[in-house]
Simulated scan of single mutants.
Amino acid sequence: MKDTAKISTPLGLVLITAANDTITGLSFTDDPPETAVTPKTPLLKEAERQLSEYFSGIRKAFDLPLRAEGTEFQKTVWAALRSIPYGETRSYGQVAKSIGRPSASRAVGMANNKNPILILTPCHRVVGSDGGLVGYAGGLERKEQLLKLERTHANR
C-alpha cells in the first residue's frame, strides 16, 4: 500500500510517498494530488518531524528508511550522495571518483537528476566543477536556499 502526505516547509509544499514502511519519494509541488493528506502513518509523521528539525537547523542527518527505484548505477550514486556531509558540496566529478567511475561525471549528473527522494538523498549538495549551482529538480533557488541553510548551521 502506498501512502502520500503533503508537508509544508519553508521552501514550499513537499509530497512524501511511502510504501511498505519505507520512504519512496519526496518532491516539491505546487499542486498536490487530492489523495495527499497530512501525515497519518507513524513513518510519515516521523518524516515530517525530521524535516522540521532539518529546516530549523537542528537535524544534520536523517534517520529514515529509504527505498528508491532505479538502476544499480543510480542507486550507487544516490548512496554516495547520502555520504556527502551536511554543509558540504561535491562536484559531479568528485562523486564519480568516489564510486570508482572517474570518467562518469555526466552519468552521475543524470542519476542525480533522477533522484526521487529530494533532501533526504541530498542531490542539492552536488555542484558544477567550478562550484556553481547547476540543475535541481526543486529549482535552483531552492537548491541555493538548502545550501545556505546548511552552511549557516553546519558548525553548530
Rank of each mutant, 00 (worst) to 15 (best):
M1F: 04
D3W: 03
D3S: 11
T4C: 07
A5H: 02
K6C: 01
S8D: 08
T9Y: 01
T9S: 06
G12C: 04
L13P: 00
I16Q: 00
A19R: 05
T22S: 10
L26I: 03
S27W: 07
F28I: 10
D30F: 07
P33Q: 01
E34F: 07
E34T: 10
T35V: 11
P39Y: 02
L43P: 03
K45W: 02
A47W: 01
Q50Y: 06
F55N: 04
S56H: 13
I58G: 12
I58N: 14
I58T: 15
A61S: 15
A61V: 12
A61E: 15
F62V: 08
L64P: 11
L66Q: 07
A68F: 06
E69M: 09
F73I: 11
T76I: 13
W78N: 04
W78T: 09
A79K: 14
L81P: 02
R82M: 11
R82V: 03
S83G: 06
E88T: 14
T89M: 07
T89D: 07
Q94D: 10
V95A: 02
V95P: 00
A96I: 04
S98Q: 08
I99V: 11
S103G: 11
S103H: 06
A104P: 02
S105W: 11
S105K: 07
R106A: 12
M110F: 09
N112H: 09
N115K: 01
P116A: 02
L118E: 12
I119A: 06
L120T: 07
L120A: 07
L120W: 07
T121P: 03
G128A: 13
D130G: 14
G132A: 10
G132Q: 10
G135L: 08
E141T: 14
R142F: 13
Q145G: 06
L147C: 11
K148F: 12
T152A: 14
N155Q: 14
